[in-house]
């Protein structure tokens, strides 16, 4: 860094070569290396004939996938997983998007209270409200059914959709709606021709992110599902829990299938959204 360069761009970092940068690269590097090793271990073990104490497995085979599909009723589990996922995505968009629209367009008395209602489920760990929710669902004979699992998963998903879409809708110019009305469009027509096409990227992103979260949502599904409604992540938990009677390779074969189901929507989602948005709400990128 020359003095001239420094005065020109006083705050730029020095090309990642300072001591702190090196420390940070090491911290991130160690983290990702361990993570990669952890995942690779699971993948490798799922293909291992046997693997005990050596650096790599003794041999490779694909038979554990057939074994897992057979023993763990994988097809049923996958069907349940994607039924629940699709239902939660569609319902949370149908319920969440209109609410996001109202919150984006109107200031009204009591809005803070409504916002609090939508924020609370995100500020509590799912297992906290999951236990009373499961108890209540058992009262209405809904727990242990597909409907119960879907309903339980809507509780965090609908607020998530609302939080994601509200800033997105705020960015859509309200004059477009007014212009359409001036030209004689009815409310349903304004929605169909103006709003929904403009909201499409946000709806798509929100839907994919909800799907990712539902696939990984353990607690709520675990608390409300009976033996016939286990999603993949819950089935995986039970097989690990009952480990000892099953070969570890078969468990890891199931873990790999779970990873794949989680990665596919993630890869699609990453084409549309910035990774930070997956955990936080959509940021207004162009805020000045």
């Amino acid at each position: 860094m020359t003095i001239a360069g420094a005065s020109e761009r006083p705050v730029r970092r020095a090309g990642g070569l300072s001591l702190t940068s090196i420390v940070l690269v090491v911290v991130l590097g160690v983290f990702f290396l361990n993570l990669a090793a952890l995942i690779l271990g699971v993948v490798l073990n799922s293909f291992a004939t046997s693997w005990f104490g050596s650096l790599v497995p003794d041999g490779l085979t694909t038979r554990w996938y057939a074994y897992a599909a057979d023993t763990f009723q994988l097809l049923d589990v996958l069907r349940v997983t994607f039924t629940v996922g699709a239902a939660v995505v569609v319902l949370s968009l149908l319920i969440g998007a209109p609410a996001a629209y109202a919150l984006a367009r109107r200031q009204f008395p009591g809005k803070r209270l409504v916002m609090l209602l939508f924020l609370l489920p995100m500020l509590l760990a799912p297992i906290t409200y999951g236990i009373p929710l499961a108890t209540a669902l058992y009262q209405f004979d809904l727990a242990g059914s597909l409907a119960g699992v879907i309903l339980a998963n809507l509780v965090p998903s609908v607020p998530f959709v609302i939080l994601l879409l509200t800033p997105f809708i705020e960015q859509i110019d309200e004059n477009l709606e007014r212009a359409a009305r001036m030209c004689g469009a009815s409310t349903p027509r304004v929605f169909a021709k103006i709003l929904i096409p403009l909201m499409a990227p946000g709806l798509l992103a929100a839907g994919l992110l909800v799907l990712i979260r539902v696939l990984a949502m353990f607690e709520l599904t675990f608390l409300t599902a009976g033996p016939g409604e286990q999603t993949l992540v819950v089935a995986l938990y039970y097989t690990v829990f009952a480990a000892g009677i099953r070969p570890t390779q078969a468990i890891d074969a199931m873990a790999v299938i779970y990873m794949l189901t989680a990665f596919v929507p993630l890869l699609v989602a990453l084409r549309f959204v910035n990774p930070t948005q997956i955990v936080a709400r959509i940021k207004q990128e162009n805020v000045r």
Binding site: P98, Y129, P132, V155
Partner: peptide, 27 residues
Amino acid sequence: GIDRVLWLLLPAAALLGMLFVYPFLYG
């Protein structure tokens, strides 16, 4: 700010009322 648009909040509020607030009070 109170007009028909606010009805759009109803499904979400009702859902969370039934599946979050009610179970919590019940618990």
